[in-house]
């Protein structure tokens, strides 16, 4: 054919010019290509995940501050933490309370997911409204809630006083008994939409014929929810639980803006305490020990939950 007539094309010459190469070289070229593709992300994670993890552990066994050379400290910091540091224990307790608020949030979110997932008009509008708070800047959200909790002119005090539930305004964020609860409400407000979306996604993956079969067998709606929906939602619920637990470790912004740990240390979380220890009083070594304890506590919790969920709740970076 005509194209073939011009057979000695540039392409063919180029093809032959390559010459013989061994598979070994080919493999090496491919390995190099793959390495170039993977290296940037691996460097990022080496720099900002793996090296810091090891460095934290090393630092936690040293006496060290920015000016002085490091000295081996053994378990000094851990002794200090467990035996003498009351703030640490308070922060740990508050963090665990924060985890419980996640459970409450998830229960609420399951209820909302059932309602929003029903075939009703405007379900997408409801879903959007409930989810809208999740992607917002947490610092801004904290400032809004501070304002809503305000003692003098805050919306909540105004509402409670208007309906006659209280006579005197409550200083929600300045009171030892209410500050942590107030922050937890704001945190749940922000994240409940994410829980709901995850659970709705889980519900959508349940085959509809299961419900048809159940209703033919005479199961009522409650029985269908209890016997089909809930068990099949297990992976989604565990994923939410994982996110909630990680969040009790990572919720720095909200506390920093709303109370900065106060009054006293009533709203101190482990993460805010770590931050203050490291960057306000420059005890980086002690803060490293706090971080190591916190990290391994959360790792163990996550692994336990993962075991219970059958390994399906492994995706945790979502809470970032």
């Amino acid at each position: 054919m005509a194209i073939a007539a011009q057979g000695t094309s540039a392409g063919r010459t180029a093809g032959r010019a390559g010459g013989a190469r061994s598979w070994w070289t080919l493999r090496r070229r491919r390995a190099l290509f793959l390495f170039v593709l993977l290296a940037p992300s691996l460097i990022i994670f080496l720099l900002y995940r793996l090296i810091p993890l090891g460095w934290n552990i090393v630092l936690s066994f040293e006496h060290w501050s920015l000016a002085k050379p490091a000295r081996f400290a053994g378990l000094y910091h851990y002794e200090e933490m467990f035996l003498y540091d009351d703030v640490f224990w308070e922060a740990l307790r508050n963090t665990l309370y924060f985890m419980l608020s996640a459970v409450a949030g998830i229960v609420l979110a399951i209820g909302l997911a059932v309602l929003v997932n029903a075939r009703i008009r405007g379900r997408n509008v409801y879903r959007t409204i409930i989810f809208m708070s999740y992607p917002l800047m947490v610092v801004a959200v904290g400032i809004i809630w501070r304002w809503i909790y305000d003692e003098k002119t805050g919306l909540i005090n105004y509402a409670l006083r208007s309906v006659g539930l209280i006579d005197q305004p409550i200083a929600f964020l300045e009171s030892f008994s209410t500050a942590l609860l107030a922050i937890m409400v704001a945190a749940v407000w922000q994240i409940i939409g994410l829980y709901m979306i995850i659970i709705i996604t889980g519900m959508k993956s349940i085959p509809g014929h299961l419900y048809e079969a159940a209703s033919i067998d005479g199961a009522n709606r409650w029985q269908q929810f209890y016997r089909i929906t809930l068990p099949l939602l297990r992976p989604s619920i565990f994923l939410c639980l994982m996110i909630g637990i990680i969040m009790s470790f990572t919720s720095f912004d909200l506390v920093f803006v709303m109370t900065n740990g106060g009054p006293g240390h009533a709203t101190e979380l482990l993460i805010t305490y770590i931050y203050k220890t490291a960057f306000n009083v420059s005890k980086l070594d002690y803060a490293a020990a706090l971080t190591v304890f916190t990290f391994f506590m959360f790792l163990i919790l996550a692994l336990v939950i993962n075991r219970f969920s059958g390994g399906e709740a492994g995706q945790v970076e979502i809470s970032e």
């Binding site: 093809g15 013989a20 598979w23």
Partner: peptide, 13 residues
Amino acid sequence: DRLVNELPSKERD
């Protein structure tokens, strides 16, 4: 006349 075992596909023509 070429043994192509060692050639990447783009050079096999």
